[in-house]
Design a protein around this nucleic acid. Structure first.
Lengths: 123, 123
DNA sequence: CCCTATGCATAAGAAATTTATGTATATTGG
DNA sequence: CCAATATACATAAATTTCTTATGCATAGGG
């Protein structure tokens, strides 16, 4: 069907998630929260980033499945209000991986700081 | 053929360039240096990042061509020691774009900082 | 009832990069 | 002199990661 509004797009405050950062975000959130389900992660990211980062489901669910397949996450299915939830939590391997991913992110940011030489710096 | 060394891989200090950051790096370096040629960029990035970031030629050259096609870069061919060099520099449009790309990078890093809540913070 | 929110999932396509080549000249060590 | 390495460009195929577009299902509000 045709768009009936003249307001074609309201694609607000968009992500610009640098590719590769999603896994690190997932791992770190699970590290903090203990366990979370997919939808909860999307909401938490939106909230913490003040709407700046928007994780799409098409990116999130495959990422979760992959992390699980790699043995970094465990799943536990629950039914709440007759709706399905899949709670994910870090395995031991996942906890170790989280540490190294965060270190990698920090290295990346430090490197970018060297290259891009901005007004800000990491303390 | 079979690998004759027991030293299978020496894939050192690897890139882990978060996808999407390459263009910003190129633009910022050109902004600082005035003009650079491709090979020079790879060496400069390696040097500034202390070997952390390794720009591959397969990524760099297409990126340069695309930035040129978008009108962000100008090229100037030179011959030095009988070898070809293509010097790139920012157009006016490229200079403006550089500013917004850097702002975007800063936003990203701030968002990651909110999410990943590390020991370090941006000042 | 219909729309939004909650909650999962997958498929097709796009974008950015890696890996693998290819060409050519210059320099250095043995 | 020759082989390996460095300099300097380029492109194609494959891969990774993400967006966009769907699809299914339940709950709640107006």
């Amino acid at each position: 069907m045709v768009n009936e509004n003249s307001i074609v797009q309201e694609k607000m405050g968009n992500s610009k998630l640098y590719k590769g950062s999603l896994n690190t975000i997932i791992l770190k959130l699970l590290d903090e929260e203990g366990k979370m389900y997919g939808y909860e992660i999307t909401q938490k990211v939106k909230e913490l980033s003040k709407g700046e980062l928007n994780i799409t489901e098409g990116a999130l669910y495959p990422a979760l499945h992959k992390l699980e397949a790699e043995g970094l996450l465990d799943v536990e299915v629950a039914r709440v209000d007759n709706r399905l939830r899949k709670y994910y939590k870090l395995t031991e391997k996942g906890e170790k991986e989280t540490v190294s991913r965060l270190a990698e992110l920090e290295d990346f940011i430090r490197s970018m700081q060297q290259l891009v030489n901005p007004k800000w710096s990491i303390q």
